[in-house]
């Protein structure tokens, strides 16, 4: 019962946390680029404005896909905070991600189409990495249950440092930060403009932004599992991880999906296997 309550609480708080993180991110990124930056609450203003706009969409599929994407992201956050199975959560999350691609494919716009193709490539890259991380967590703690992993007596980071690195790569892809901002980017100065999001506007774009916040909270939650023993350790780990994301975003140019499949995926797989082998031997 408490777990379900916790899940519902997370469902309400996750978008707030996600928006706040996005606002902080924008502010810190601005300072790193020697700009002043927007107010911390700017993401909320943006989304509120999007919801205030006239709903106009090309076809019903897009609307349906936007809702399913939000549903997938929200349900996976609920499952995570309710302490459910990591594998179940993984598949629910994947459904949401795939429906984002469907939504983009539902329109004939070449930017949207190419963005969808690239998003598929990104899914293809981070999903295997994510499942390897889950396998590592299960191997170290003996359970796929989030609740069981959460109550593991010692910080998992010490056992799974390489897998944590792999998880941060997946986080970079999910956050759509350089060098992995191919399918869509936080600013539209890209060859395919906004990629998968090109054909979305108004309240439906707001839904997608909301879903994005849920996803960020989910991946950060999975990061938090690596130091679940103390609240201070957890917060420090998350802060350092996010700061590193901003740092990487600002020290690198955008690369290409060919590079991602060629180098990033291979490196991620190699690191994961190394860590898993180490777990078996230890």
């Amino acid at each position: 019962m408490t777990s379900i309550l916790l899940g519902i609480l997370a469902l309400i708080l996750a978008p707030l946390a996600g928006g706040l993180i996005a606002g902080l991110d924008r502010r810190v990124t601005a300072r790193v680029q020697s700009r002043f930056g927007p107010p911390i609450l700017q993401p909320f203003y943006d989304v509120a404005k999007l919801f205030g706009k006239e709903p106009r969409m090309g076809n019903v599929w897009q609307i349906f896909c936007a809702y399913i994407y939000l549903l997938g992201a929200a349900v996976s956050v609920f499952l995570f905070f309710a302490g459910a199975d990591l594998l179940l959560l993984f598949f629910v999350q994947a459904i949401g991600a795939v429906f984002l691609v469907f939504g983009a494919l539902a329109r004939p716009s070449p930017y949207s189409q190419i963005g969808a193709q690239r998003e598929l490539m990104q899914i293809l890259t981070y999903e295997p990495l994510l499942i390897l991380v889950f396998v590592g967590l299960a191997k170290a703690t003996g359970s796929f249950k989030v609740a069981a992993i959460w109550s593991h007596p010692e910080p998992l980071l010490l056992q799974l440092p390489l897998l944590y690195l792999v998880l941060t790569t997946a986080l970079t892809i999910k956050l759509r930060k350089s060098p992995f901002d191919f399918s869509t980017s936080h600013h539209g100065h890209q060859e395919i403009v906004k990629g998968v999001l090109t054909e979305y506007s108004g309240p439906y774009l707001g839904l997608i932004e909301l879903a994005h916040w849920y996803e960020v909270v989910l991946v950060l939650g999975i990061c938090a599992l690596f130091w679940s023993t103390s609240l201070v350790g957890l917060l420090v780990l998350l802060a350092v991880t996010y700061a590193a994301e901003i740092f990487v975003d600002n020290t690198m140019a955008r690369l290409t999906w060919r590079w991602m499949l060629g180098s990033a995926l291979l490196a991620g797989l190699a690191l994961s296997f190394l860590n898993l082998v180490w777990l078996y031997l230890a």
Partner: peptide, 10 residues
């Protein structure tokens, strides 16, 4: 153009 926004500002 290649997504290196911080360098742009610089």
């Amino acid at each position: 153009g290649m997504g290196f926004e911080s360098q742009f500002m610089q």
